[in-house]
């Protein structure tokens, strides 16, 4: 055995510097606490609103009451929702941070996880972690006019923004909302949209490709494609931010219109969708160029989008 006079393994342990000092990476000093960013917090499904077929609204509350008070977020951010035993999926938050106490997620039934979510009953346990992503920089939007353009399920994240700005109405200029869907029966948040149509402090324009028979009598919108609505609004591109969310095909035509109106490219904000497995900039599934949709997005300016290959 080698001579170990005066040597004690326990001192070796204490002498063993912790890693940050050993390697001297500044980035590591950011390590705070030992919390695990992958750990979902238990939450309960408290209410299901089957708004439109396969587009239901789910309301959740954290089991731990403190979290219901402390969970704060920006419009446009998302959470990772775990359906226990099935998996995890990124879902944008539909509720507004101005109305705390619960989280609302409008979820399209489109894969294994969301399919399983539709099988849950009220009071069932799920896991939620977040909020993630940049969200809309609402401080930057303050003092500006807003043109909010939603197509189909794109209303889900934008509903958060709509209620945020309406609840802080004095901070913003003119607000125009354009909302398009395939048919009048596909419009999400119908009751709220009716409220918006009656409000004077937001101009809410609806457009569908087809008005369903049962909606004909009271139809208060237009028919056609979302770009047809541009002739009904007056926007000053110098003082307006456009916030867009919708199916990929919609972006192309809407962007064209906005550019025709001479919007600066960084005044066009778009919410993008990608596959995500972590939400925290590690798993690399959502990378677009050098950006991670989950941490640098999901809200990107059109300038970013142009400069990133594969963006749309």
């Amino acid at each position: 055995m080698p001579d170990r006079v005066g040597f004690d393994i326990t001192t070796a342990r204490t002498g063993f510097n912790t890693f940050p000092e050993r390697v001297g990476l500044d980035i590591l000093s950011e390590r705070v606490g030992k919390q695990d960013p992958h750990k979902p917090e238990p939450a309960r499904l408290v209410r299901i609103d089957p708004m439109v077929e396969d587009h239901w609204l789910f309301q959740f509350r954290f089991v731990e009451e403190r979290l219901n008070r402390e969970f704060s977020y920006r419009p446009g951010q998302f959470v990772m929702l775990s359906v226990i035993g099935v998996g995890e999926a990124p879902i944008s938050i539909s509720s507004s941070p101005t109305r705390p106490g619960m989280i609302e997620l409008c979820v399209r039934r489109t894969g294994r996880v969301t399919d399983a979510l539709y099988r849950l009953k009220e009071n069932d346990l799920v896991g939620i972690r977040g909020p993630y992503g940049n969200g809309f920089n609402v401080d930057k939007l303050k003092g500006n006019d807003l043109l909010i353009i939603a197509g189909g399920l794109g209303m889900a994240p934008l509903r958060s923004l709509v209620w945020y700005v309406l609840d802080n109405r004095k901070d913003f200029g003119d607000i125009n909302l354009m909302y398009g869907a395939r048919t009048s029966g596909d419009l999400l948040f119908k009751n709220e949209i009716d409220l918006l149509l009656n409000r004077k402090d937001i101009k809410c324009l609806l457009i569908v490709e087809r008005v369903q028979y049962e909606h004909r009598v009271n139809w208060r919108g237009h028919t056609g494609l979302i770009t047809d609505l541009f002739k009904h609004v007056e926007v000053n591109p110098k003082s307006t931010y456009a916030a867009i969310c919708g199916p990929p095909v919609m972006y192309k035509f809407v962007l064209q219109k906005l550019l025709e109106l001479e919007f600066s490219k960084d005044r066009i904000l778009m919410s993008l969708e990608r596959k995500m497995k972590c939400g925290i900039g590690k798993c690399a599934h959502c990378t677009i160029g050098y950006k991670y949709t989950c941490i640098h997005g999901p809200i990107f300016t059109y300038w970013d989008a142009m400069n990133l290959p594969e963006m749309i």
Binding site: G85, V86, G87, R112, D115, A116, R119
Partner: peptide, 8 residues
């Protein structure tokens, strides 16, 4: 399958 899900 017992959980009405398909295995990944």
């Amino acid at each position: 399958l017992l959980h009405e899900d398909v295995p990944v």
